[in-house]
């Protein structure tokens, strides 16, 4: 037995078959597509995107997140929010107000009806 083997105590890999779903939840798909489309539209370069995403991945590691890949799109979303704000495409208060309004609308819309933003909170 070698105590010097650095790989020995590392966690095993999470498995996933080739036939599994591409996205586990609809929000993952939307977050994914928003970043790709904004980059295609020239709002940021893909290199910038990778910098922001890898910073989020590194931050998760710093926090001690085991990061088994299943929280990948959470990192993706956090990177997108930061990039949108840093590029001046939107502000943090705007996002907070919209998140509040969407949450209210989702909670209060009766089943079977489309969820729409009716009440809007000002962003400041």
């Amino acid at each position: 037995m070698s105590d010097a083997d650095p790989a020995r105590d590392l966690p095993r890999l999470p498995w996933e078959s080739e036939d599994g779903p591409v996205f586990r939840e609809p929000w993952e798909a939307t977050a994914f597509a928003m970043a790709v489309r904004l980059s295609e539209a020239g709002k940021f370069t893909w290199t910038e995107w990778v910098e922001y995403l890898s910073a989020e991945v590194a931050a998760a590691k710093e926090r001690g997140d085991p990061d088994l890949g299943d929280r990948y799109y959470e990192h993706w979303l956090a990177a997108l929010e930061r990039l949108v704000i840093d590029k001046g495409l939107g502000t943090e208060p705007e996002l907070a107000a919209l998140k509040h309004d969407w949450t209210e609308a989702t909670v209060h819309t009766p089943h079977g009806q489309p969820i729409e933003l009716k009440k809007r909170t000002p962003a400041d």
């Binding site: 928003m34 705007e94 933003l117």
Partner: peptide
């Protein structure tokens, strides 16, 4: 009875981004 299950925080952040970017004509 008009209250639904509270949605996930993450999903609402995505909705917020989507609305923001759409309304600004960026998406």
């Amino acid at each position: 009875h008009t209250h639904n299950e509270p949605p996930s925080d993450t999903a609402m952040r995505v909705k917020a981004l989507e609305t923001l970017l759409t309304e600004k004509g960026l998406l």
